[in-house]
Design a binder for these strands. Structure first.
Length: 291
DNA sequence: GTCCAGGTGGTCA
DNA sequence: TGACCACATGGA
């Protein structure tokens, strides 16, 4: 049976840190749809998790080529090439004021997910609650995605292509609970499905990519930064939402978060770890408020 | 009933 | 640029 080990990961923290909305927690495990496959992730000890594939016949051994392909998909998705323990240490060393937040966040990894899924997800996230974002996304999958597999009566779906999303009406998006964002989703999916954006955009520098994304309806600086981080895997990003604003104010007395301040934070203050620092701020402050 | 949510668009200065 | 308000909707 196929198995993939991810080291230095805490699945619960990763799931719970506002970066992924497609995981389905079930009996101490997480079902994770990626592309046209469903995976199952389980924490095997404090530091490590194992991942299995569910929709390949367990009896038939995977062909070598398929196995290599899945290895690659999971390596990229879980960002296994990066040494998180060292990165967390580095942040604490340079920014002692963040020590508590870093220790609280250790085990959290930054996932690299499907780009169009991130576009839709974070467009929905604007002025919205996490449970409602999840709910709307699962309705979109169910309506426009393909069935991957059914387990214990629960059907899992792939994330729909931009082409099929562009065919949904504004009313449909509203029906799924998108609220006033429905009109933006309608317009932007139509525009993107007619635009072979993906390959060209991948070559852009992060700040150019952010600018391109901001030209789309329903995408502003915060959402664009989330898309380049969790979709394009750009670590020179720094999404500023209500929680990160609180952290910037609390630790550094930064009240204004305009273009200049953002540039300073990414280029000077947190440099190559800005994305992870931001995620630590978000996760630790949000969780602190929930206790 | 009121407040808030991983903010953005439109308008106006 | 930046400040202001409206925006759907559901959970606390």
């Amino acid at each position: 049976m196929y198995e993939f080990i991810v080291n230095d990961i805490d699945l619960k923290k990763t799931y719970d840190s506002g970066q992924v909305f497609s995981w389905y927690p079930h009996n101490d495990e997480y079902y994770i749809p990626i592309g046209s496959r469903l995976y199952k992730a389980k924490q095997i000890n404090t530091n490590d998790a194992k991942i299995n594939v569910l929709n390949e016949s367990i009896k038939n051994k995977l062909k070598k080529q398929e196995k290599n392909e899945i290895d690659l998909v999971l390596s990229e998705y879980f960002d296994v090439g990066r040494d998180y323990p060292s990165l967390y240490d580095e942040i604490t060393k340079k920014h002692n004021e963040l020590k508590e937040g870093v220790d609280f966040s250790r085990g959290m990894r930054l996932l690299k997910q499907d780009i169009s899924e991130m576009i839709i997800t974070f467009m929905l996230s604007a002025n919205n609650h996490i449970p409602r974002i999840r709910n709307t996304l699962s309705k979109i999958r169910e309506f426009a995605g393909n069935t991957i597999i059914e387990i214990d009566g629960i059907k899992f779906y792939s994330f729909p292509s931009l082409d099929s999303l562009s065919k949904l009406s504004e009313e449909k998006y509203k029906e799924f609970g998108a609220g006033y964002r429905a009109a933006y989703l309608c317009e932007t999916t139509k525009l993107l499905s007619n635009l072979s954006y993906d390959d060209k955009w991948k070559k852009l520098k992060t700040q150019e990519l952010v600018q391109k994304l901001c030209e789309l309806k329903g995408i502003g600086p915060k959402v664009a930064h989330c898309i380049v981080l969790f979709g394009y895997g750009r670590w020179d990003s720094f999404p500023i939402d209500t929680w990160v604003k609180k952290a910037l104010s609390k630790y550094y007395g930064i009240e204004k978060t305009g273009k200049k301040e953002l540039e300073y934070l990414i280029e000077k203050k947190f440099a190559k770890n800005s994305a992870l620092v931001q995620q630590v701020m978000f996760y630790s402050l949000k969780k602190e408020s929930e206790r």
